[in-house]
């Protein structure tokens, strides 16, 4: 179970990207989302891919981890692909495949492929954020990024506390579930050896103890935090402080340049041949 869970795991290679301020990384990722949405032609996509691969190689994390990060979403990607294939009804376009009265047009196929490509890069690339940042720093970064919300009276520390506790609980809850599964396997109900119907029943039976465990854990946590004088919203000193350095600005600049290039390219419609 835990072997397959790649989300939220930091892979430390000590690269340049790892040392970047988490706030910079978050802003960069937001810019990246805009960049990938703006890319509408194959040429633009090629640039985005090149750009992504360069940044990915800067992290010095093996590319297979990025590919694996996108894997769990394959159902969604397949769905997007199929919808695109069905949706496009181009009367003059070339037909790839005909089933009864329905035609698969080349255009639809191309569009589907394009959307999936977008999705793959979106998910894999933004995994940089979690791969190169420890949860604690990530949370601090989130707090920093959310600071502007104070204007509208939303407290960022309340929100980040919630996020950090939720993130902290995921592995513990998984572990707790795994302990029960192992114990059940020892008592003759091995999830791997059961038929599908029994499997479902077993997983449902896990809900009660895992929920009870989570509540117990949450209560302990509240008490231990309160006994150490924690009060929400009170000013606190930080153990690690985020310092904005030149490299953080440079990192964001990469993305801004890329974004400007994208806007420019889509504005002028470069490369008619390449358009979809």
């Amino acid at each position: 179970m835990s072997e397959k869970l790649l989300i939220g795991r930091t892979i430390d290679t000590g690269s340049w990207v790892h040392s970047i301020d988490p706030r910079a990384k978050m802003v960069a990722m937001m810019l990246y989302v805009v960049i990938i949405i703006l890319s509408n032609t194959w040429l633009e996509m090629a640039y985005v891919i090149l750009f992504s691969l360069i940044i990915i190689s800067l992290t010095r994390i093996h590319i297979k981890y990025f590919i694996r990060a996108a894997k769990p979403l394959w159902v969604l990607m397949l769905f997007i692909f199929i919808v695109q294939c069905i949706k496009v009804d181009d009367k003059n376009g070339a037909i790839l495949l005909s089933i009864g009265s329905w035609n698969l047009y080349f255009e639809g196929f191309k569009l589907g492929l394009f959307s999936v490509l977008r999705m793959v890069f979106l998910v894999s690339f933004t995994a940089i954020l979690t791969f190169t940042t420890t949860p604690g720093r990530l949370n601090q970064g989130l707090e920093g990024v959310l600071k502007p919300l104070k204007v509208v009276r939303v407290s960022p520390d309340r929100f980040t506390l919630m996020v950090s506790i939720a993130l902290r609980f995921i592995p513990s809850i998984l572990e707790e579930a795994q302990i029960i599964l192992k114990a059940q396997a020892s008592r003759g109900a091995d999830l791997r050896e059961l038929p599908w119907k029994e499997k479902g029943k077993m997983l449902v039976s896990l809900l009660v103890p895992v929920t009870v465990g989570a509540f117990r854990r949450a209560e302990d946590l509240v008490h231990s935090m309160e006994s150490r004088g924690f009060r929400l919203g009170e000013p606190r000193t930080k153990y690690h402080r985020l310092v904005w350095r030149k490299r953080d600005t440079i990192f964001i600049c990469f993305f801004i340049v890329m974004l400007v290039a994208m806007v420019w390219m889509s504005g002028y419609g470069t490369g008619e041949l390449w358009t979809l």
Partner: peptide, 8 residues
């Protein structure tokens, strides 16, 4: 911690 494995 076998008490963690009770579930019924």
């Amino acid at each position: 911690f076998p008490e963690q494995q009770l579930f019924e």
